[in-house]
Design a protein around this nucleic acid. Structure first.
Lengths: 348, 348
DNA sequence: CTGTTAGCGCGTTCAT
DNA sequence: ATGAACGCGCTAACAG
């Protein structure tokens, strides 16, 4: 027995008790493999010595499992954690992981060319949102399960919401109210970063991004309503925050009254709420002077007056489903969740 | 050389290239220990075979470091991720960790009697908010660094904000406006869970909880203003969410006009915003009929009309500081951050 | 500059 | 029901 151990290990505990390491291991992991009496005495001694069970690092090396699931976020962690939709998604993920004894590791997708080495620690990966480059995904271990959320990876399970039908539905509703000058505020839809007015030429090529699908829904609705989508002005927002979207929205609201849109179809609640705030500051009446629609259904848009007209997507459920798939509880398919039209006061 | 390896390892790569494992290891970890030519050829072959660098599990066992920092959250993950203050804190933590090649592991404090085994994976622990029990903290590895946030652990670095002076300042400001019937809405201050009106008898004993400090600030201000704090009605909210606080707030607002407070000192912006929303629904004028103060300074309270009068605490900075302490960049002391009085329209 | 070797702490098989 | 021995994949110390 070593004189004084700086850290208590299973081996040390075994030596101290005069049993083998296997027995101590079994005491923690396979209660049926030893007598209850022995087990209890081992656990008691462990507690007395302040030994908190097998070391996670060694255990994970040996078993190959860490009970850690990583969520790779397309944006920076800072952004994602401050975004209501991403946070709600994460909370759904956390709920399921927690219920199954797993923990949540957060990995940033942006800002880092190479995923940190600790990435390979995870038992599985949930990839949330389109990555700016795929280099990061290639860096992930090939073998372990992945689930993509809000976009697609070849041959990989995925969770989506019905973006295009939902956008179509809300745009139809809004147009039925009789808009003279509709406008669309996009979210990151251009090839090059651009914060402001855009044309159809500068759009990203058709891809399976959620914002592209939402735009397709808007355009379809405009078309069905007898309006040529190409004539409808569009603006682009680079980041879904108040600070980034505010200048663009200000430009829109400060247009001469005859040019200013009387309906803004926004790709997110954050954008719509920014418009709402800035419009109120300018004394514009909602919905008389300006009608607004959002997308997401975040709480902030509903716990205020006027309530936002929007599409509610259940981000928490998206998270729960993605987590269930990773853990193998739910089948690893491609699933599309349905959304719900929320008729608020911003576009009755 | 084994016939067919199911997973590529450093050893396999070394055998394949006819060099020793140490050399391959050095190629990844200590570029100066081998010729650039050899290094390049090793990295090239690694890439070709799809080997993404040393396995994190094995590496962490060997080096003792995982480059993972755990944040233990007092509440459930679901709650914390949906709370603006906690999210902002986490984003500050993530920012610093990310900049230093570390990743963030989220551990729930509530709802689990024993921390998951994977906890011992972390190199350090940031403990955010008072734990319901200390059993969880005892389960954490003793040796590795800890930082407490918003409360104190014996002999442990800590980050705080100046809760009591800040509460004193905002209460003084509010009372200077001339309140006839002030009231206080607390956040989880009773021994037993209680959602509603409370008396001084049911209060938790004096402890170093942030809400207790805030209450002390309120009481001091009332006293200095010539009002006996014991005569001021108090309500308690069990969870800082709209859904939980709404019934209590409704009871307050639905009191007969002569009993209804004309000033509510709220312990959080979330509570104050709930009061604002519900008051608006009842046609009460803010601040004429009811004046409201919050605490935290979350965005949601400022990007709306009327803007909330509140105390702004820089949660992100709190997170950055805590992370810096854990990484050893900042000295591991007890630090108290200052706050800022934000004069909005809800209590001018 | 490169190779050899000895564990890091543990789980598991195969003995008894 | 219990113990001895092996190796998970890697890095650090040392030898050449």
């Amino acid at each position: 027995m070593p004189a004084q151990q700086r850290r208590i290990t299973l081996k040390y505990l075994a030596a101290k008790l005069g049993v083998s390491t296997a027995t101590v291991s079994n005491a923690f992991n396979r209660p049926d493999q030893l007598s209850p009496k022995l087990r209890d005495s081992i656990l008691a001694e462990a507690k007395r010595l302040g030994y908190n069970g097998p070391d996670a690092k060694a255990r994970s090396l040996r078993t190959g499992r860490s009970c850690i699931i990583a969520v790779v976020l397309a944006e920076t962690l800072t952004y994602s954690l401050n975004d209501a939709v991403a946070s709600e998604f994460l909370s759904g993920v956390a709920e399921v992981l927690d219920a199954h004894g797993h923990t949540l590791l957060l990995l940033p997708g942006r800002g880092r060319t190479q995923s940190p080495g600790s990435a390979s620690m995870a038992d599985g990966f949930i990839v949330y949102g389109l990555m700016p480059t795929t280099t990061l995904l290639d860096g992930l271990p090939q073998q372990c399960p992945r689930v993509a959320v809000d976009f697609d990876i070849d041959g990989c399970a995925a969770v989506h919401v019905d973006n295009q039908p939902a956008s179509y539905a809300i745009a139809r509703h809004a147009l039925a109210g009789g808009a003279k000058r509709p406008g669309i505020v996009n979210l990151r839809l251009t090839e090059q970063p651009c914060n402001g007015r855009i044309t159809h030429q500068t759009l990203l090529p058709e891809k399976h991004t959620i914002t592209r699908s939402r735009l397709a829904g808007f355009h379809q609705a405009l078309h069905d309503h007898g309006i040529d989508p190409k004539g409808v002005p569009m603006w682009n927002i680079e980041e879904n925050t108040f600070d980034v979207s505010a200048p663009v929205i200000e430009d829109i609201l400060d247009l001469p009254a005859g040019e200013r849109p009387d309906l803004l179809l926004c790709m997110s609640d954050r954008i719509a709420l920014t418009a709402l705030t800035l419009a109120e500051q300018r004394g514009l009446r909602i919905p008389e002077d300006l009608r607004l629609t959002g997308f997401d259904g975040i709480r902030e848009g509903q716990y205020r007056a006027p309530r936002l007209t929007t599409v509610r997507q259940d981000s928490a459920e998206k998270g729960r489903l993605a987590a269930s798939m990773i853990l193998g509880i739910a089948p690893r398919q491609r699933q599309v969740l349905t959304t719900e039209l929320l008729l608020g006061d911003s576009c009755p």
